[in-house]
């Protein structure tokens, strides 16, 4: 079972969610809980299953096994009025291209009893939207801004974004993030991204998905506390021992220096463990890591393990 966030009443609650397309398993027994008010960033490399997971949450696809609830509603029953409380924006969503921005907003207004005209006007001004231009004639950035405007005006309780910032210039991206942060006190935000730098600045929670498996899911602050880049300076050169803890990732040695990423850093206790594992420790430094470095460490370890598993499987086949 994967780690879960359990604090509070979750806006999104997922248990053992599995999705297969034919023989291909895209998501494997995902477990996840997103507390209300959180800004949850789902990260992972391309093809990890992020979009599939979001589509399952939005009832665009149906799961093979497991269950998921969004704002207390079973995802497979998510339809109609339930979407008055949910906003969904995706980078590859087909928008009503033949409508002007004005027409689109007018049309959408009819679907939402809680549509805030004042907020609509504010967003139109903030995004500087060309109201009389057809959606199909908008630039990618403007299209995304219009999609945001059409999704935020009814003050949704949950905002789900699938790779919303992909391909946008930094200025547009910052404008969109700003608009999101303005909503964040009243809404839970769940977004997928493979741009670690952009989500590091505002996400409160983060989950890492790779090859359909949730490697971890936790608060950003806890994650930052848990990972340290450890550099151990020894008195004499030595080979890496075989029985290093599993939490020590990417261990490598060069001359008298051993480096690794501790994914379960516990302060002094971790430093004592280092001293016990290596003879003649002259110095130990534990440095906090940026999110990007943490993910790279996890991703590389994951791939190495995956490759090792493939080699072992191949060897077994050859042996057989």
């Amino acid at each position: 079972m994967n780690p879960t966030i359990t604090s509070g009443d979750p806006a999104i609650d997922i248990h053992d969610l599995t999705k297969r397309f034919g023989q291909t398993e895209v998501l494997h027994e995902i477990g996840l809980a997103v507390p209300k008010g959180a800004i949850y960033a789902l990260v992972g490399p391309n093809g990890a299953g992020k979009t599939t997971m979001i589509k399952l949450l939005m009832n665009i696809l149906q799961p093979t096994a497991g269950e998921a609830r969004v704002l207390g509603v079973e995802c497979e029953g998510l339809a109609g009025k339930a979407f008055e409380r949910i906003a969904y924006v995706s980078e590859n969503q087909e928008l009503p291209d033949t409508m002007t921005v004005t027409q689109m907003l007018e049309y959408l207004r009819g679907f939402y009893p809680r549509w805030d005209v004042g907020l609509e006007q504010a967003l139109v001004r903030q995004f500087d939207l060309p109201m009389d231009r057809k959606m199909k004639h908008l630039s990618r950035g403007m299209k995304m801004k219009a999609a945001f405007a059409g999704s935020l005006c009814y003050r949704p309780e949950l905002i789900v974004l699938d790779e919303p910032f992909t391909g946008l210039d930094p200025l547009v991206r910052d404008e969109l993030i700003e608009s999101l942060l303005e909503r964040s006190p009243e809404a839970t935000i769940f977004l997928s991204s493979h741009d670690l730098a952009e989500i590091e600045s505002f996400a409160s929670h983060v989950g890492y998905l790779e090859e359909g498996r949730m490697l971890f899911s936790e608060e950003m602050a806890v994650l930052s506390e848990r990972f340290r880049e450890v550099t151990v300076t020894l008195e004499t050169p030595m080979k890496l021992p075989h029985n290093l803890p599993g939490a020590w990732l990417q261990a490598e040695t060069a001359d008298c220096v051993v480096r690794f990423v501790d994914s379960e850093f516990r302060g002094e206790a971790s430093e004592r463990e280092v001293a016990e594992r290596f003879a003649g420790v002259r110095d130990v430094t534990c440095e906090a890591m940026p999110l990007r470095a943490i993910f790279l460490a996890i991703a590389k370890t994951g791939r190495t393990q995956s490759q090792a598993a493939q080699i072992a499987a191949r060897d077994r086949r050859v042996g057989a």
């Binding site: 109609g80 979407f83 949910i86 969904y88 087909e94 928008l95 009503p96 679907f111 939402y112 999609a147």
Partner: peptide, 14 residues
């Protein structure tokens, strides 16, 4: 048909 239409995640009642 498809999974990219904008309306499928709006409060349309079938």
């Amino acid at each position: 048909v498809g999974d990219r239409q904008f309306w499928i995640t709006r409060p349309y009642e079938w």
